[in-house]
């Protein structure tokens, strides 16, 4: 029993580490087009931000990233590295906006290198060599699975931290009080759970995303003269 509690506590703490803004993987430098929404004057208050985040969540992150993480778990359970490579390639081909693609690859590689340095998982060097792109969701799936974090918890961790990174970006772009931030997070919480549950059992062929306005803003961001974020 004591061992069980120890394992569960360890998994929980690893999840916290992965969702923490202390995690030095560079996601704090990505806004996934949010900076352009602010620069173009489309959003400038917490209500607009909350509604926009729902679109990011339901139509960009959940139907794509959750399916990728879940598929990596299934492939990891079968120790099928070819399948994980296939998922990484598939995810790569869904990212039409260059900066979104590059942000995901950069933070994925950072995460992998960090865990090579700080964990005992001895297959990570081999994975680093063989994975074609090391997208963030692929690496997060591999590491979370190895840490025996439950699949649903890994998905919730990713979506929650994606949302907090975007809110943190918004805080640097316009005035947003800490109370408003917590109101947004509280409001999003049930949607985060529903979106994860709605997509966790989908297979890789069902991976999808459609939010033209966000994608267009992500593409426009490439051309902003002055910008704080890499995407």
């Amino acid at each position: 029993m004591a061992d069980n509690i120890k394992t569960q506590t360890s998994e929980f703490l690893t999840s916290l580490r992965l969702a923490d803004s202390f995690l030095p993987v560079g996601t704090y430098s990505s806004s996934y087009g949010l900076e352009s929404f602010v620069q173009e004057g489309i959003i400038d208050n917490s209500d607009d931000l909350r509604e926009l985040l729902k679109d990011y969540l339901r139509h960009l992150v959940a139907p794509s990233d959750i399916v990728a993480i879940s598929s990596v778990y299934d492939a990891g359970d079968e120790s099928d590295i070819d399948k994980i490579i296939q998922i990484d390639n598939k995810y790569h081909s869904t990212q039409v906006a260059k900066e979104f693609r590059e942000s995901s690859i950069k933070s994925g590689n950072n995460l992998l290198e960090l865990f090579i340095e700080t964990s005992d998982y001895n297959l990570l060097n081999k994975i680093h060599e063989e994975l074609p792109h090391c997208h963030y969701v692929t690496v997060l799936g591999i590491i979370s699975n190895d840490a025996q974090i439950k699949k649903i918890d890994a998905c919730l961790t990713h979506v929650y931290s994606f949302m907090t990174e975007l809110i943190s970006a918004a805080q640097r772009l316009f005035q947003l009080s800490h109370i408003k931030v917590q109101q947004i997070l509280s409001n999003l919480q049930p949607i985060i759970v529903d979106s994860c549950q709605a997509n966790i059992d989908n297979n890789i062929t069902q991976m999808q995303s459609f939010c033209p306005w966000i994608t267009i803003m992500g593409m426009k961001h490439e051309r902003e003269d002055v910008k704080l974020f890499m995407s």
């Binding site: 959003i43 509604e51 926009l52 679109d55 990011y56 960009l60 790569h92 306005w213």
Partner: peptide
């Protein structure tokens, strides 16, 4: 090389396509 995979389902009854992140006040994509 798989260079592009684009997959989406639109069901207007479930999701209002004219939300901010989606198509805003535009109609044609």
């Amino acid at each position: 090389n798989k260079i592009l995979t684009d997959n989406y389902v639109l069901t207007p009854e479930n999701t209002d396509p004219q939300r901010d992140g989606f198509m805003k006040d535009f109609h044609v994509f």
